[in-house]
Design a protein around this nucleic acid. Structure first.
Lengths: 136, 136
DNA sequence: ATACTAATTGATATATAATATCATTAAGAT
DNA sequence: ATCTTAATGATATTATATATCAATTAGTAT
């Protein structure tokens, strides 16, 4: 199935690159309709998946939340704030052979792993109250 | 807010312990209605959350899938099969100071981390075709 | 340039997972 | 036995994402 170049697809890609803080599909949609008011939300979802498969962007499947999309640059993982639910970048030194720490998975082919840290972000520590409304 | 003991709550707890392979809320509901046909699905969801908060069971928020519930015993993480989506236990040796590998998270209080490995399970390697219908 | 064909789109319906609402019930204390 | 309020059951609602399908359009072949 050959991939064609469409203005919708490149608008979505541009939006992900421009927002570049792990935007959700909805946030990306909101950004795109400004320049292209007729785009369908389904098209945004479709292109986010397509672009992920093409390796142009990175899809982050967040436990307990909407998927987020990132322009893939350096290797990093993420930390999710328990209080406000926001997601932050975490630079991490190469974890040498994490696979070697594993037992009892005979017969599995590993393709990778996601580490999502949990914690309380500086803002929430300060205010110590829930700020769900302040999401990303 | 004091917690009361109800038959619904203990039935949900029993089901999680009995199924003990990371059942979803739906699967737990299916197990409970056999003995208690009038239980509401909302009650199952509510009790799964309550029991998690109480520390009686462990909630696993799976990226790209429904939450799963486990009776918490030894320390382990999970591997999700890319092909069939099933989730398997992974025993893992203590990863000493994973937090120490992290940079650029000044001001965060860490509470923990989830590692979800990705890979192809033995079954899918054998059949090499999608088996989504075989979902745990 | 014109025609072809299949990928893509837009609009909508559907699916799935989970929470919110609210009147009723019942657990545990007095 | 009575009281208080946590918990339940039924249902509606929210959120996220995919499926469907006719219409459009990108890229190729003529």
């Amino acid at each position: 199935m050959m991939k064609r170049k469409t203005i919708q697809r490149s608008l979505v890609l541009d939006a992900v690159n421009k927002l570049h803080n792990h935007a959700t599909a909805d946030e990306i949609y909101d950004a795109v309709i400004i320049e292209h008011p007729n785009i369908s939300k389904a098209t945004v979802y479709r292109n986010l998946n397509t672009l992920s498969e093409m390796g142009e962007i990175r899809k982050l499947e967040i436990p307990g939340g909407a998927d987020r999309y990132d322009h893939c640059t350096h290797n990093h993982c993420h930390i999710k704030c328990d209080k406000c639910g926001r997601l932050f970048d975490v630079d991490i030194d190469y974890i040498s052979g994490l696979e070697n720490n594993i037992r009892d998975t005979r017969g599995f082919d590993f393709t990778g792993y996601d580490i999502i840290f949990r914690g309380t972000c500086p803002d929430c520590k300060k205010h110590s109250m829930s700020q769900k409304e302040k999401d990303v």
